[in-house]
Design a protein around this nucleic acid. Structure first.
Length: 591
RNA sequence: GGGGUCGUAGUUCAGUUUGGUUAGAACGCCAGCCUGUCACGUUGGAGGUCGCGGGUUCGAGCCCCGUCGGCCCCGCCA
């Protein structure tokens, strides 16, 4: 076993003449019969190895028997490539290694999909099944090198600001609030369970009570909910909490962190401070709490303008306390009926009943809605929407929240499909003043919008009894390119206030004690004011690379929360279940 | 839980609209030729449970029903 002298991305012209020993994977073989080229690859790059049968026919025989992805070592001498044979595309392209000996360290089965090929993209199913081969691709290697750099930036940044990295348990008490827990049965306590943490929220607050003042942790979190392209059952947070906080301190620490990350990854300087918008602002203007502001197309409320219309659809919606809103799609008045039908399809998927298109063409204004509007009204509306000739206006009527959310989703759909988003541009800002509560659409009960420990505006305290849905919380998000990458809040640190919130949430003292008693107790033993945030680390890497969440996690799960490589989840031995006093009860519809 | 979409050679796909002889291509693989390639070139060859199950039909990759799986969206995600 010899140690390699260089990596496959290292050799340059000035290394010519050196005796080297390289190890790596066979990327490609180009056998010309009288001359054989072999690209040797490792994480650092590729180096061309040359074998000449006239110099060593035994070695040539050996080399021509190699195959892609075999693992070999090559001993030889570095040489400058002949003039005209230099490859400017790769960093080692000025040199090659004239092999003296080759050792096969391990053969490789024919790969189920090409590791080297750049034009044939294997399906995600294949990539996940053979994840080790997928990760071997340079594209993936680069993602994880970047991910590693960002871990380092976060650790360094928070350490510099006086934060201590402290681990919290993975086997924790199940708290029924929030997402569904992943459960771990206890062997020594029959019938009892641990939960995997949805976040270290309660523990980090207790660390503040313990006087750690500034804490952080790069930590896995677990949530047993249905997945999306940006959600995995286990994901990584940079969890941060500090004592005696003020909003500007917290935002400053987070902003400078993101500045460093974007500088390192994209070599851009983000303009600081980041803009701050309130929740109600972004909801009204973009119909979502995480708008992508790399393109405009704001929602415009035209409810009052259409108040007196005799157009039946509009009239009926507004009589039911509904709203009318529109967006202006720049320069798209030329869309055909069919293309607009596609927009309508997207609108229906977004939860709208439909859309009312108005085209501002050179031949005049077209659209059913327009015919029911006076010229003056039309002028007011187009002016407020910033619309000009050639633009396409899309209106939606219906329940207030529905039109807002629906048009927000349609706006995003149009932004994506019409190519309005510059991929390299950055929209980064804060959303503040989230409501403290939201209404459960099924039961009508109050529920925490963020989590039940979220603090709120002192001046809204009277609203707790009169109009709790109007109480503004001290919760905030950071949104980058339409992705929520950070979320946090200033906490409630007064046990009496905390109790009051619980009671509004329908959690009585007894239940509160049962669920969160240890936190409530801790808060009574000298709790500092506290606040913090958690960065959705995987999403940050997603935004930086433009990839899906599965591309930035080494061993991700599919949408059905399965791992195709190792086949989990799986059945377990009866004995294990017996030790845990667990019996499987099949679902009622199982065959 | 609901909606959409895809599943054909080792891989990526065409073929499904309008059912009809022996299911094609590219890459990969195997064998041969080839002295400056770098997606080498070139000649030949092997390779198919058309995801799975059922149905309709003289006949199903194609139509129908069910089911499994990948992806996207809604619900859900304090």
């Amino acid at each position: 076993m010899r140690r390699r002298t260089h990596t496959c991305g290292e050799l340059r012209a000035h290394d010519a003449g050196k005796q080297v020993f390289l190890s790596g994977w066979v990327a490609r073989i180009r056998d010309h019969g009288g001359l054989l080229f072999l690209d040797l690859r490792d994480r650092y790059g590729k180096t061309q190895v040359v074998i000449r049968p006239e110099e060593d026919s035994v070695l040539y025989e050996k080399a021509s028997g190699l195959h892609g992805e075999w693992v070999i070592s090559v001993e030889g001498e570095v040489a400058l490539r002949p003039p005209g044979a230099v490859n400017r595309q790769i960093s080692t392209g000025e040199v090659e290694v004239h092999a003296r000996d080759i050792e096969v360290l391990n053969q490789c089965l024919p790969p189920p999909f090409p590791v080297e090929e750049e034009e044939i993209h294997p399906s995600e199913e294949m990539r996940l099944r053979y994840r080790y081969l997928d990760l071997r691709r340079s594209e993936m290697q680069e993602i994880f090198a970047l991910r590693h750099r960002v871990y380092g930036i976060a650790r360094e940044h928070l350490t510099t600001h006086g934060f201590l990295e402290i681990e919290t348990p993975f086997l924790v008490k199940s708290t029924p609030e929030g997402a569904r827990d992943y459960l771990v049965p206890s062997r020594v306590h029959p019938g009892k369970f641990y939960a995997l943490p949805q976040s270290p929220q309660i523990y980090k607050q207790i660390l503040m009570v313990a006087g750690f003042d500034r804490y952080f942790q790069i930590v896995r979190c677990f949530r047993d909910e249905d997945l999306r392209s940006d959600r995995q059952p286990e994901f990584t947070q940079v969890d941060v909490e500090l004592s005696f906080p003020d909003i500007d301190t917290i935002f400053g620490i987070a902003e400078s962190l993101f500045c460093k990350i974007f500088k390192a990854a994209w070599d851009v300087d983000l303009p600081s401070p980041f803009p701050r918008f309130t929740y109600s602002e972004v909801m009204a203007k973009y119909g979502t709490d995480k708008p992508d502001l790399r393109f405009g197309m704001p929602l415009v409320d035209v409810t009052e303008d259409l108040r007196d219309t005799d157009f039946r659809i509009v009239k009926e919606a507004l009589e039911k306390d509904g709203a009318a809103r529109g967006i202006c799609v720049k320069g798209e008045a030329g869309r055909t009926r069919k293309q607009i039908a596609d927009f309508e399809e997207a609108a229906k998927n977004a939860g709208l009943g439909g859309i009312l298109p108005v085209k501002l063409t050179t031949e005049g204004v077209q659209g059913a809605l327009a015919q029911h509007l006076s010229e003056a009204t039309l002028r007011t509306i187009t002016e407020r929407m910033g619309a000009q000739q050639g633009d396409l206006l899309l209106f939606a009527v219906g329940a207030r929240e529905e039109t807002q959310k629906g048009l927000g989703a349609l706006r995003l759909h149009l932004g994506e499909t019409l190519g309005l988003i510059q991929p390299q541009s950055i929209s980064i800002f804060w959303v503040t003043e989230f409501p403290l509560f939201e209404k459960d659409p099924v039961t009508g009960d109050l529920a925490s919008a963020h989590h039940p420990f979220t603090g709120f505006f002192d001046e809204d305290i009277a609203l707790l009894d009169t109009n709790p849905l109007a109480v503004r919380s001290h919760a905030y998000d950071m949104v980058v390119n339409g992705s929520e990458v950070l979320s946090g809040s200033i906490r409630i640190s007064n046990p009496e206030v905390q109790r009051r919130i619980f009671s509004l949430l329908g959690i009585n003292d007894e239940e509160a004690t049962r669920r969160f008693g240890f936190l409530l107790e801790a808060l009574r033993y000298g709790a500092p004011l506290m606040g913090g945030f958690a960065v959705g680390f995987d999403r940050v890497i997603m935004v930086l690379t433009g990839k899906s969440i599965r591309d930035v996690i080494a061993f991700p799960k599919t949408l059905l929360a399965a791992s195709l490589m190792d086949g989990c989840p799986s059945e377990v031995d009866e004995k294990l279940l017996k030790d845990l006093y667990i019996q499987f009860v099949p679902p009622p519809d199982a065959k």
